[in-house]
Design a protein around this nucleic acid. Structure first.
Lengths: 350, 350
DNA sequence: CTGTTAGCGCTTTCAA
DNA sequence: TTGAAAGCGCTAACAG
């Protein structure tokens, strides 16, 4: 039998559908005896309530939508793990969709999730997402929304993320403390809120040291069509080395840029940190066993996911009625390793 | 307005619900004029059909369940990416659940997915899954199922995976060709079908060279409660080095074991491959920039995901009516790098 | 304590 | 060409 229904049970036991329904939900209205008979029958016959029907009836689907740029990213998947843990615990299941860094795609994901009847949405906006009108509109319909990872001051909302500005500032200061003076930065599109903050932290750290090259050494890495991100990274690094005064250190603003840069620098035969130091945002567990061990800015991915999910479930449950939105900022951790240790060249000038 | 329904449109336009429904589905029964009015109204008012209702009515949910051991695993997440690509294309969305390598958990996931009304299931069974009765029972109810990644000859079913036996055989032969003779193996539980095949490939390669230590150098790594997998790897490697004749090479049977072994060997101060060579199943893009570059057996994760999803969608669509189950075996690729290059010790004996 | 009834939003005969 | 009505499986108000 494909799917047993309440009706089947009712028929088999000579009861009505509603009695069976109530018995299964342990209603006080039903006699102990009947309950037992119903439950026994349901068990032995592997009755499974149809959630589609229940969802339709109750107007809630028991699922939560999650939109990320790409599931195929260790940082993202760790956040998803955190999200899933909390949601599973609370009895929600999650529907994950990928924006692949496209705003159009992101909107389409949101539409689908809405249509599917998710009770709330967790989103890490795409790189193309500058404005938040679509999210505002969605929230207007009563959909609870929590931004995670890629948070933004331009969108009044509940958010969970890290202090991008400060993390970038610290990383840059660390390079400066190790006497690097021509620090280049690889970033993704500069319009993206979190990327902008990382640039700002970098720039302010330079400014504090009265270094005046400003944005000249920033390279936004956004692949053109038909080009991989790695191609773009290669081209960017190439262009930096062709400068009259090439950089002596590189600060990479995302997970992917960090490891790609490491690969590309290897390919090009540059020694790290002798020729160029490297530090970047990264969450790989492999940082210690890379060549050289990679200095990283580590973000607490699991924790971000957990907190975001908890916040969302709170909103769904009607708690967090306080009209005020809350932004949770977790600290990022600087993990200093060999790729940014004080370089040899420094001694020459010292 | 929270959710506009057909009724709202019908009321606004002075039509009946069924007319609106048909108009929206471009039925031949409806006049061009009416269709246009309805569609225009629906567009401007952002009508979204309620998929829960549609699902209930049609008895199909438009979603596919995916069960994996853990989403937080780069190999898994790449397969998921492949799956999602195909499913999204075909208009299905995916509900991902994690078994966390527990059979109980796996069963619970399957129950939930079934209740949720998924139209098919893609599963990479947990490490504890020795028998397949629960999957058989589920399939009896008419649920299409495709096994991916962790395939098994013990379960007659559609499957997509790699040739584990052959891959392990090749990797071991490679070590032998580079003159390593005491080759140890780290594996997960030996009952797991794919792990068993990997062991078998390893053992047969040894046998072919008339190496007689057989299973003595195999270490199953399954964390006890309160212990991390890394702890277990550390203990296993420790025990290998404490042997009268310690190994000169190590073959690791899973992604996690490979990178953990690399870390642990680093920690313990062993040089690779001078003290011990290393090759393992791994899908990290970082293999080239590890210390040393890690020889790996690479599995085409994205492709596995894609093919499995395509197969499943085929089954759902009623194609693949052929009573015969199909097992697709993709080749794994041996990527030889420094961690398994011919060692120094060899010269001494040579 | 149990059953009848109405409907959640949609699709789909069958009539008009 | 349009509409009325039934029903997917479940819940809940209301009767009995």
């Amino acid at each position: 039998m494909p799917q047993m229904t309440l009706r089947d049970i009712a028929y088999a036991l000579g009861l009505s559908v509603s009695t069976v329904s109530k018995a299964l939900r342990d209603s006080y209205e039903i006699s102990k005896d009947t309950k037992e008979r119903v439950i026994a029958y349901a068990r032995t016959n592997h009755y499974l309530p149809n959630r589609m029907a229940k969802s339709l009836k109750e107007g809630k689907s028991g699922s939560i939508g999650v939109v990320v740029c790409s599931i195929d990213n260790s940082f993202v998947s760790r956040m998803l793990d955190g999200i899933d843990g909390v949601c599973a615990q609370a009895g929600y299941d999650i529907v994950i969709m990928q924006s692949k860094e496209s705003l159009v795609q992101e909107k389409s994901c949101l539409k689908q999730l809405e249509a599917r009847g998710v009770e709330g949405i967790l989103i890490s906006p795409s790189a193309e997402t500058i404005g938040f009108e679509h999210l505002l509109a969605l929230r207007e319909t009563g959909m609870p929304i929590v931004l995670f990872d890629r948070i933004s001051e331009r969108f009044e909302s509940d958010q969970v993320g890290i202090d991008n500005y400060h993390a970038a500032f610290q990383a840059t200061e660390h390079l400066l403390a190790n006497r690097y003076r021509r620090i280049a930065m690889l970033n993704i599109g500069l319009d993206i809120p979190f990327a902008r903050l990382r640039s700002a932290g970098y720039l302010d750290a330079l400014k504090k040291k009265h270094l005046t090259y400003g944005k000249q050494l920033i390279r936004p890495c956004w692949p053109d069509t038909g080009e991989t991100l790695k191609d773009r990274v290669r081209a960017s690094i190439q262009s930096l080395f062709e400068l009259a005064e090439p950089p002596d250190a590189l600060f990479t603003a995302t997970d992917q840029l960090s490891t790609l840069s490491l690969s590309v620098l290897h390919e090009m035969g540059h020694r790290i940190p002798e020729d160029i130091a490297l530090i970047g945002f990264s969450n790989t567990e492999l940082a210690d066993v890379l060549t050289p061990p990679l200095s990283t800015i580590y973000q607490p991915a699991l924790e971000i996911g957990r907190l975001a999910a908890e916040k969302l479930i709170g909103l769904i449950s009607g708690r967090g009625l306080s009209e005020e939105y809350e932004t949770v900022i977790l600290p990022a951790q600087l993990h200093i390793r060999d790729s940014s240790r004080p370089g040899v060249k420094v001694q020459v000038n010292g």
